[in-house]
């Protein structure tokens, strides 16, 4: 009888191990597929692929600098908006709000993550873009127009719109992770700070933010990783022009939206290969950024447990 149980345990162990091995294999498989499929393009363009901004399917000439720029800048705008909002929200939820409020507010914020991205995109086209064009962009142009960031005609759609849409989409991620980081900080820290006569703000500053800083950074990078790969909503509001402009009002183009836009109609083999190489570059960027986030969060939790 005992033997039987023991044997079952062993089978179960092998089963779990097999399942666990499948996932890294899948990751390697996807990376390998992308690399293999983009070989013709790598062979043809080499590093020029990353360094030029001309993307011309009609002449089979491809460079993705403008798309890398668009992806990075729109995600950066998103982070600049979303990170402070999310951190303050998490602080409010964990340090200030009552238990009941914390639960219901977290629920609503997490609901934001459940909205399909095409819905965000439609909202972007029909609500956000006209609002930006009529009110926000003319206002920014008037007040901050001396900065090249806020010059040029306002179309509504463009980098700014893409950044704002992305920020709304990543707020739930950053808030949820930051909240967990704050909740994992032992209460004894806060009590110790209070015992030293700290005000509420000082408690938050010393005991919560400082202790959780690595975790916060991890949460922000996790949000960044999500923003980099977002496709549908961005395509709908970014303006889709493969150009690099310093103005936030100008239209741009992101890596994932080019793939989504052009793959179904691509017929030349070089075009398809170039699109897959974009996929490869995006895969490497997000892989790198997510690993970075892991390291930060891991270090934060390690420090939490040793103390």
């Amino acid at each position: 009888m005992r033997r039987e149980i023991y044997r079952f345990d062993r089978y179960f162990y092998f089963f779990l191990k097999g399942v666990a091995i499948c996932l890294p294999l899948l990751l390697i498989g996807i990376g390998g597929f992308l690399l293999n499929a983009s070989l013709p393009s790598i062979h043809q363009f080499g590093f020029d692929f990353l360094g030029t901004k001309i993307w011309d399917p009609a002449r089979d000439n491809y460079g993705i600098l403008a798309f890398v720029f668009g992806t990075l800048i729109s995600s950066l705008i998103a982070i600049l908006i979303a990170a402070p909002l999310s951190i303050f929200t998490a602080l409010f939820l964990t340090e200030v709000a009552s238990r009941r409020l914390q639960k219901s507010a977290s629920f609503i914020i997490e609901m934001l993550a459940a909205i399909p991205s095409v819905v965000y995109g439609l909202w972007g086209i029909y609500v956000l873009a006209p609002f930006l064009r009529v009110y926000v962009e003319p206002f920014l142009g008037k007040t901050l127009g001396f900065l090249p960031l806020f010059q040029g005609p306002s179309y509504g759609v463009g980098m700014l719109a893409a950044g704002i849409i992305l920020s709304i989409m990543i707020i739930p991620t950053i808030t949820a992770v930051t909240k967990e980081v704050f909740l994992s900080i032992p209460n004894s820290y806060r009590e110790a700070a209070m015992a030293l006569g700290a005000t509420r703000w000082e408690v938050i500053k010393m005991a919560v933010i400082k202790t959780g800083s690595a975790g916060i950074l991890g949460a922000v990078i996790l949000g960044l990783g999500r923003a980099l790969g977002e496709t549908m909503a961005v395509t709908m509001v970014i303006g889709n022009r493969s150009d690099i402009s310093i103005s936030l009002f100008a239209p741009g183009q992101s890596m994932s939206s080019v793939i989504a836009n052009e793959y179904s109609e691509a017929t030349s083999s070089l075009h398809i290969s170039a699109l897959l190489e974009i996929g490869l570059v995006l895969f490497l960027i997000t892989f790198f950024i997510n690993s970075l986030a892991r390291v930060f969060v891991w270090r934060a939790s390690l420090r939490g447990s040793t103390r």
Binding site: I54, D56, P57, A58, M236, G239, N240, R241, P251, E265
Partner: peptide, 16 residues
Amino acid sequence: VGHGTAVNWPAGLGGK
């Protein structure tokens, strides 16, 4: 510019 199902547009905004 030339012709094709997707081209390198010299001006304007793209909609999906």
